[in-house]
Design a protein around this nucleic acid. Structure first.
Lengths: 131, 131
DNA sequence: ATTATATTAGTAATTGTTACTATTTAATAA
DNA sequence: TTATTAAATAGTAACAATTACTAATATAAT
């Protein structure tokens, strides 16, 4: 079987993601990590992010704009996406486990999870007249 | 200003999408429409789909797997995504307007809409032992 | 019919992401 | 400590989804 081996790069990627609350894209993380590891490759960032997702140590966010984003907080929670600047922020709203059961009643299959993205205008964009 | 001009292709794209309930990707629609317009181009399909989304006549679904999907039903409703085969189906669950207000209380901005995707295993995949 | 402009087909370019490969690194055994 | 094995890497190429470009065509208005 395939056993996991330590890698400085992977540790750095995870540490970097944990230190942030802005849900960076793979490319944004790549730029950040290159300050510490100037010749890390973008493929290494992607590979490790996907691996960490598989291990359940981080989660991937697909919120409709271009690139996927990553979140070191794996507890169930929701996100708020600004339609103007694309910023994604955590929404400390209690997770609604019950809606899986509500959906189950109408679904043609077994429901076991859900994602919710809320869309609107963030405070910054509102104050700056939507940029 | 830019005035809209009729196009057979656009009509065909919309009609084709309205006739389906399986939320096809742009490429899937392209294949379907080529039966009627054998030399329509993929770019035309993408351009018109995006235009129809802007006009509010259809909606785009981004459910995390590869390509975006399109839905001619613009009324607020939710979707069920099978984690095994990727099939996306409508979930006739009453839209929860109230959760925008719930989110509003915790969001750093103005919330005006949301999307929910439910994930699980569809009946077909379950019966076929997950393929 | 003439004109103006939106739309198109076809193609090239871009973006986000994954795959490939020779080299390096980490874990293990001798 | 050195030798062995396999995982991870950097660098690059390939890929898939989507958008941009352009000359030709279709639509609407004059």
């Amino acid at each position: 079987m395939k056993t996991l081996k330590y890698s400085r790069q992977r540790e750095s990627i995870k540490a970097c993601l944990m230190a942030r609350h802005d849900h960076p894209t793979a490319d944004a993380l790549y730029t950040l990590i290159r300050e510490e590891y100037p010749n890390i490759s973008l493929g290494t960032v992607y590979r490790n992010l996907n691996l960490l997702v598989e291990l359940g140590e981080i989660q991937k966010l697909t919120c409709g704009d271009g690139a996927d984003r990553f979140d070191a907080d794996t507890s169930p929670h929701y996100h708020f996406v600004c339609k103007h600047c694309g910023k994604v922020s955590d929404l400390p709203l209690d997770p609604m486990e019950n809606i899986n059961h509500m959906a189950q009643e109408h679904a043609d299959g077994t429901v076991d999870s859900h994602t919710i993205y809320f869309y609107g205008t963030c405070k910054d964009c509102f104050e700056n007249n939507y940029r």
